[in-house]
């Protein structure tokens, strides 16, 4: 049992994701308040791990960890957490962190707070603010026990505070990684040929409110008039109405256009991760309480089809 914080960082193609730095920065602040140390954990070699402002960095180097393998990574993290008994284990609530955080919680019988937006120290313990129910509610939860897992939404803390040059200590895998049931075969690169939405200055982005594939044409027409390209939120892509290359958000792409015109997107936290840096955000949604209106610069509670058609006449 310690007052230390372990941050499980994530990297791909030799580069750490922003969330890793965000978590390390927050971990330093929490460790200071708790009287412990903030340690960054890097699972896998093949990446320069001397980049964090952590009190220490542990890099687990093993050939079996050269690519993200949910089973292998989970086993390594489990062994480290057992060995170090930290007060808090921080993950990103990301496509990789989500594979391990809740598994570890059930495996070790320690609490997990997911969808975390903020963490603070209170009475020697931590209180976590979680953005649940599609961003419609914020829950403040206090984990019981000596160790807690916190899985944070990307973009919750400034990344700068986590950037530094702490020399990483390389260690061998703390667990036997032979006999894994899961084997990495190959990376699958996104299908080429489509437009790159991250390179666009204007996006007309459609959400579930667009209603069906047959209505995408209206958005395409509006986009063409504005010199924009059509992007989308996840449900639209999952429904097969637009290709995955057009998806904005956590499991899609991060965009920062000059104009982000949103038609029928409610603004779930996963979507906000991908677009909140846009210069001008205009949202049209029929739900006047849609979370997107807390983020957009301009909004209208209106029928997106009527507004889009009226805009076409004026452009």
């Amino acid at each position: 049992m310690s007052n230390d914080i372990l941050v499980i960082t994530e990297h791909m193609d030799g580069k750490f994701s922003d969330v890793s730095f965000e978590l390390v920065g927050k971990a330093k602040e929490l460790a200071k308040a708790l009287g412990g140390q903030a340690a960054a954990v890097v699972v896998g070699g093949g990446v320069d791990a001397n980049v964090f402002a952590s009190d220490s960095t542990i890099q687990v180097d093993d050939a079996a960890l050269s690519q993200f393998n949910p089973e292998a990574y989970a086993k390594v993290v489990e062994a480290l957490v057992k060995e170090k008994s930290p007060k808090v284990v921080m993950f990103g609530w990301t496509v990789t962190g989500m594979d391990i955080a809740a598994w570890l919680s059930a495996r070790l019988g320690v609490p997990c707070a997911a969808y975390a937006k903020d963490v603070r120290v209170e009475g020697g313990g931590i209180v976590v603010s979680c953005q649940a129910y599609g961003g419609k509610l914020t829950a403040e939860v206090a984990p019981e026990g000596e160790t807690a897992i916190v899985a944070c939404l990307a973009g919750s803390f400034p990344a700068e505070a986590g950037q530094g040059a702490t020399a990483a200590e390389k260690i061998a895998s703390p667990v036997d990684l032979s006999g894994l049931k899961m084997k990495f075969i190959e990376m699958v690169k996104p299908a080429g040929g489509d437009v790159d939405i991250t390179a666009q200055t204007k996006l007309v982005s459609v959400g579930r409110g667009i209603g069906g594939k047959e209505n995408i044409e209206l958005a395409e027409e509006l986009a063409a008039k504005l010199g924009a390209v059509v992007s989308a939120s996840r449900p639209v892509v999952d429904a097969g109405w637009l290709p995955r290359t057009r998806q904005v958000g956590k499991s899609g792409l991060k965009v920062k256009p000059k104009l982000y015109l949103m038609l029928g997107i409610s603004g779930a936290p996963e979507h906000l991760e991908g677009m909140k840096g846009a210069e001008l955000i205009i949202a049209i949604n029929t739900d006047k309480k849609a979370p997107i209106f807390n983020v957009a610069h301009y909004g209208a509670t209106a029928d997106l089809f009527e507004v889009a058609e009226a805009m076409l006449e004026l452009l």
């Binding site: 791909m12 690519q67 993200f68 393998n69 496509v95 990789t96 049931k181 899961m182 084997k183 990495f184 075969i185 190959e186 990376m187 699958v188 690169k189 996104p190 299908a191 991250t198 995955r244 290359t245 998806q247 956590k250 499991s251 899609g252 792409l253 991060k254």
Partner: peptide, 12 residues
């Protein structure tokens, strides 16, 4: 799936 259409194939 990872982000932006990238992903990886695994045998499980």
């Amino acid at each position: 799936e990872f982000a932006g259409g990238a992903g990886a194939k695994y045998s499980v």
